[in-house]
Design a protein around this nucleic acid. Structure first.
Length: 400
RNA sequence: GGGGAGAUGCCCGAGUGGCCAAUGGGAACAGACUGUAAAUCUGUCGGCGAGAGCCUUCGCAGGUUCGAAUCCUGCUCUCCCCA
């Protein structure tokens, strides 16, 4: 594959490459490049948002380059200074390794393990003496650190900035020095940190890394970036049903963004799909169905995607009872005098946050049995068995 | 070191002794409408309980009072101004 073709593939979806010329030069050297990606050890899921960057990393692997994952077990104590997170407790190496082991199963759904190298930044950051820290800190100025958006904003809003937070970008930058990274990948919000890496590398006499930034994937809520803590995410290990359903629930304006960042559909085709749905010649819903199928195919299978598409049309478009719903049996101890308290049952089945919540849902008309709205709380068991209980828009249980 | 302001429910923000589980907005959830989209309208929005009601919440710990988010004391944290 020619360098131009490689570049084109790597450029797909990228928000910014600093700089493309540098990247070209590095690619021309013909050796396996070291592509760095920082990993937050506190995460439990690989979300589609993170997958955007991982998929880009995989693109590099396809061209024979090495993925260098840096587990930020040291930096996690600080927490990226978004101002939201407080200083977090130090995790033990064991805890971190457990998390990493759990998450790497998901990561390798995307990455090639053969070309992946994992390191922990506590190994070098934790070993630094106070003197080392001072020396590192002297390489950067306060004014430049405060250029970072978060800091500027917090300063203006009179919100606190702790001393250690301003060291965060330096820590991350130093990782690049330690790893001798050729390229650092990141979400667009990592731009500042990654550029610090460039500066520090030159200061330490290294060839500065190329920074490749991917746009942030907007979450299912259509507003915030997809993240675990906001709950607006799809995990790569979500069931095909959830994955498909959540995708269908994203706002239309996300279509293009998601197609480009989450699928391998060629750009020209995406343009057509998006154009047609905007022009009204294609129902945006159908474009979204395509998107949902692509995503399910990627993480499960084409067959699963087909099945979920059918299920979706049958259950939601045609509003039929689901053909197959998860079975749930009514616990014996809940039956008294032949009656069952419906809200308690819903609570017990985990379909609502609490019994009180379940009661409110019933009052709001969000609960139905075989399509009939439930009204009372006490229901004879006989009227429940064999019926499909629906709670909210998409939770179904076949009672037995 | 000195002076001033502040900490309220998921978030923002009212509330200065009883009518406060706490106005309002946002978020969230649900209903209608739809395409599990958007917009709009409606309802819910601390927990438990069939219910009466009970329990927990207004930075933390004590105190005053029949009664405190509201008053007093101590503590913790944050911001601003001066040095």
């Amino acid at each position: 594959m020619t360098i131009d073709n490689q570049l084109a593939a790597l450029r797909r979806g990228a928000a910014e490459i600093i700089s493309e010329e540098d990247l070209r030069k590095k690619l021309q050297e013909g050796r396996p490049l070291r592509i760095k990606l920082g990993v937050d050890p506190t995460i439990a899921h690989v979300t589609l948002g993170w997958a955007v960057v991982l998929r880009k990393l995989r693109d590099f692997q396809k061209f024979g380059h090495t993925a260098c994952l840096v587990i930020g077990d040291f930096t996690a104590q600080i927490g990226d200074p978004s101002g939201k997170s407080k200083t977090r407790p130090q995790l033990t190496r064991e805890q971190v390794q457990e998390n990493v082991a759990a998450v790497s199963k998901q990561v390798y759904k995307i990455l090639d393990p053969e070309l992946t190298e994992i390191s922990y930044n506590r190994d070098w950051l934790g070993a630094m003496s106070f003197e080392d820290v001072i020396r590192l800190a002297s390489r950067y100025t306060v004014a430049r650190i405060l250029e970072r958006d978060d800091f500027t904003k917090r300063l203006k809003e009179e919100r606190p900035i702790a001393m250690h937070e301003i060291l965060y970008p330096l820590c991350q930058g130093f990782d690049s020095v330690e790893l001798r990274a050729d390229v650092e990948l990141g979400g667009n919000d990592q731009k500042f940190n990654n550029l610090v890496g460039r500066t520090l590398m030159s200061q330490y006499g290294q060839d500065p890394q190329v920074v490749l930034l991917m746009p942030l994937l907007v979450g299912t809520d259509g507003k915030e970036k997809m993240s675990q803590s906001l709950g607006n995410y799809i995990s790569v290990v979500d069931t095909p049903r959830d994955m498909y359903g959540k995708t269908m629930s994203i706002p239309d304006h996300l279509l293009e963004n998601w197609f480009v960042l989450c699928t391998d559909v060629p750009l020209e085709e995406i343009k057509e799909l998006v154009g047609a749905s905007q022009a009204g010649t294609l129902n945006p819903r159908d474009a979204k169905r395509r998107l949902a199928k692509e995503i399910v195919t990627l993480y499960h299978s084409a067959q699963a995607a087909e099945e979920e598409d059918n299920y979706f049309i049958e259950t939601f478009s045609k509003r039929n009872q689901p053909v197959e719903a998860e079975e749930a049996s009514i616990p014996e101890d809940m039956v008294s005098e032949g009656q069952v308290a419906l809200h308690v049952l819903i609570g017990r089945l985990g379909l609502a946050k609490s019994n009180g919540d379940a009661k409110k849902l019933i009052e709001a008309g969000a609960v139905s049995l075989d399509g009939e709205k439930a009204t009372g709380l006490m229901v004879p068991v006989a009227d429940l068995k064999g019926k499909v209980l629906k709670v909210g828009k998409h939770q179904f249980r076949k009672l037995s």
